[in-house]
Amino acid sequence: MFGIDDPFIWLAYLASILSALGCLVYGAYHWRGGDEEQTVKSSVKKKVTQDQ
């Protein structure tokens, strides 16, 4: 694969790229979902305060 015969090398090549892409997707997901998460946390906090 990719002109590399040894699977341990092309696996490393692929793993490096996929892990970086995975980081990108993970971070982007939390970037977009940020406001939603914040709203949920704020409402939970509000409830906790009311309970007290």
Partner: peptide, 11 residues
């Protein structure tokens, strides 16, 4: 969020 920048940067 920082993961989105850090991973590709290291690559």
């Amino acid at each position: 969020r920082a993961v989105a920048v850090g991973g590709p940067f290291l690559l």
